[in-house]
């Protein structure tokens, strides 16, 4: 286990190094995307479309930043086994190490962007300190869910080489079906069952419960639903990996 952690950390650092090119501006470049996306969407929905939600900056932050992390991580990880095929077949590298390094790298970028905007936003819309202490829990659940989903998708991509394109399509639809920039109350009551089936909604809800108290999302049930999803996805991904491991290497 210690060896695995050591290898994951070494690969994460190499990932960061290759992405940031050892410069502060490299790091800034990576987090510019979420910052700009947040700024533009905040302006469009609050000012142009006139969506009226108390503390909309916090509302959008708690939905959009986790969504950007989900989107980027799944898109980047789906092809990781296929793209690293030659590498994985040449050296004794556990594929999970590559996958974990990629997700940790994205988590660092996500946390940097999230905390940067949060620190600025909180000046205008204070959040109870007690709630903030719980923030690491939704972050952990987000990490486990997205790691598991990435693991599953990366494995499926080996057998169905257009999974990544299908994923982009599903993510584009999911952005509109998930209450990221609008509150769930805007969805007609007869269609709200869709939310229960939407995994991204369960992953994002605990963030909203912690960061945007005005949403009045019950914290504990949202954490339980998110934890159940994360655990379930992990079980499915690890079972599928165990069943297909040889076939994956054979098809790489």
């Amino acid at each position: 286990m210690a060896v695995l952690i050591d290898q994951v950390w070494a690969m994460t650092l190499a990932n960061l190094k290759s992405r940031y090119r050892n410069t502060a501006s490299g790091f800034l470049w990576v987090i510019l995307n979420p910052l700009i996306l947040y700024g533009v969407q905040s302006y469009i929905f609050r000012t142009v479309l006139n969506i009226r939600i108390q503390d909309y900056s916090l509302f959008l932050l708690s939905g959009l930043l986790p969504w950007i992390f989900i989107n980027q991580s799944l898109e980047m990880s789906a092809s990781i086994l296929v793209n690293s095929g030659k590498l994985l077949k040449s050296y004794p590298i556990n594929p999970i190490v590559c996958l974990l390094a990629q997700i940790i790298d994205n988590t660092i970028n996500f946390l940097a962007g999230f905390l940067l905007i949060f620190a600025f936003t909180i000046l205008f819309a204070p959040v109870p300190i007690g709630r903030l202490a719980i923030l690491p829990v939704p972050v952990l659940l987000l990490f486990v869910s997205i790691f598991s989903l990435s693991w599953l998708l990366a494995t499926v991509q080996v057998f169905f080489r257009d999974t990544r394109f299908l994923l982009t399509f599903v993510l584009n639809i999911s952005f509109f079906l998930t209450p990221i920039f609008y509150p769930p109350e805007l969805i007609p009551a007869e269609h709200r069952w869709l939310l229960a089936l939407n995994p991204f909604n369960h992953i994002i809800a605990p963030f909203r419960a912690v960061v945007h108290p005005a949403s009045e999302i019950p914290l504990l049930p949202s954490l339980v639903a998110s934890a159940t999803l994360a655990f379930g996805l992990f079980l499915v991904a690890s079972y599928f990996w165990r069943k297909t491991r040889n076939a994956v290497f054979f098809n790489l």
């Binding site: 690969m11 190499a14 990932n15 290759s18 030659k86 590498l87 077949k89 040449s90 004794p92």
Partner: peptide, 10 residues
């Protein structure tokens, strides 16, 4: 074990 020498990790 080494199976290919024409590939770098990064």
């Amino acid at each position: 074990a080494i199976f290919d020498t024409s590939i770098g990790i990064y």
